[in-house]
Amino acid sequence: MVLPISLMIFYGLEPQDALALPKTAISSAGIDTRRQKTGEPLYHPLFEPVSDALAKAPKHDAITLCANSWGKPWTYNGFSTNWDKLKRVLEAEQKIQPGLTLKGLRHTVGTILAEMGKDNGTIALVLGHATEAMAKHYSRRANRSRQASAAIVDLEAEVNRRKTKVVKPAEQI
């Protein structure tokens, strides 16, 4: 269960995409696949939390990367049922906020990218959206105050740079 959740948390994969991800989409360089819904290409380099989850995942014969305890590909309903059980435990331990959904993990990735200052094109690329409008939707709750403050600091510096310098006439020197 850790591996598919890792794919959703760290890459913002749609639950259906994470569960259907074929083993062939993974190499030492990363994940190379396409979104089922849009057909948009997805490439994500592997980084530690995901590579650790891959290394610890039980071996199985399913063609998908993620498999249930019987070694069969997860169905969305089966995974969702198990997620709900795990979610209740994590909420009780106050490790996650109540109401977190699998789809919400995808929105979280979009929000974090926007708060990092990434543009909608980059967010669309990471999430595999066909349009920047969808990236904007997924990042709409981002707190952009840090970006706005930085922009104002830059604006102030530019305004000061553009100020007309007063030059004294030669006879007054």
Rank of each mutant, 00 (worst) to 15 (best):
Thr131Asn: 03
Ala135Arg: 11
Ala29Ile: 02
Gly110Val: 03
Arg34Ile: 07
Asn160Arg: 15
Arg144Thr: 15
Asn68Gln: 04
Tyr138Ile: 04
Tyr76Gly: 08
Val126Tyr: 10
Leu19Arg: 05
Glu132Ile: 10
Ala62Thr: 05
Gln97Thr: 08
Gln94Asp: 13
Ser80His: 15
Leu125Arg: 15
Lys168Ala: 13
Glu171Gln: 11
Thr164Ser: 10
Gly99Asp: 03
Phe10Cys: 01
Asp17Gln: 09
Arg35Asn: 02
Ala92Lys: 15
His44Gly: 01
Arg146Gln: 06
Leu100Gln: 06
Lys23Asp: 00
Ala25Thr: 04
Glu156Leu: 10
Ser149Ile: 08
Pro45Glu: 13
Ser69Gly: 02
Glu14Thr: 05
Arg141Gln: 13
Ser28Glu: 14
Gly110Arg: 05
His107Leu: 01
Trp74Leu: 05
Ile26Val: 13
Ile5Arg: 02
Lys95Gly: 03
Thr64Ala: 08
Lys103Cys: 04
Val89Gln: 15
Trp74Thr: 03
His137Cys: 01
Trp70Val: 09
Glu14Cys: 09
Met134Ser: 09
Glu171Lys: 15
Trp70Cys: 06
Ile9Val: 13
Arg35Glu: 06
Thr38Val: 04
Asn82Gly: 10
Ile173Lys: 14
Met134His: 08
Leu21Glu: 05
Asp84Thr: 11
Leu54Gln: 08
Arg34Glu: 09
Tyr11Cys: 01
Lys59Met: 08
Lys165Asn: 08
Gly12Leu: 01
Val153Ala: 11
Asp119Cys: 05
Val167Asn: 12
Ile152Ser: 08
Phe10Ala: 00
Gln172Val: 14
Arg162Glu: 11
Trp74Ile: 04
Glu40Met: 13
Ala18Ser: 08
Thr75Cys: 07
Asp84Trp: 06
Lys163Pro: 02
Pro22Arg: 04
Ser28Phe: 09
Leu65Glu: 04
Pro73Ile: 08
Leu54Pro: 03
Ala170Gly: 05
Lys163Leu: 14
Asp52Lys: 15
Gly117Glu: 07
Gly121Leu: 10
Ile152Phe: 10
Lys168Ile: 12
Ser69Asn: 09
Trp83Leu: 05
Ser28Trp: 07
Asp154Arg: 15
Gly12Thr: 03
Lys168Met: 12
Glu132Cys: 06
Ile152His: 06
Ile123His: 04
Ser27Cys: 07
Asp154Ser: 15
Tyr76Leu: 14
Ala29Pro: 00
Ile123Asn: 04
His137Met: 10
Ala135Lys: 11
Leu155Trp: 15
Ile5Ser: 02
Thr111Trp: 05
Arg162Phe: 09
Leu19Pro: 06
Ser69Cys: 03
Glu132His: 02
Gly104Phe: 01
Ser149Arg: 14
Leu13Asp: 00
Thr81Met: 12
Lys103Ala: 06
Leu13Ile: 00
Lys59Gln: 14
Gln94Asn: 13
Ala150Asp: 09
Leu105Gly: 02
Thr24Cys: 02
Leu21Phe: 07
Leu105Arg: 08
Met1Cys: 02
Ala62Val: 07
Gln16His: 12
Leu90Val: 03
Ala92Ser: 14
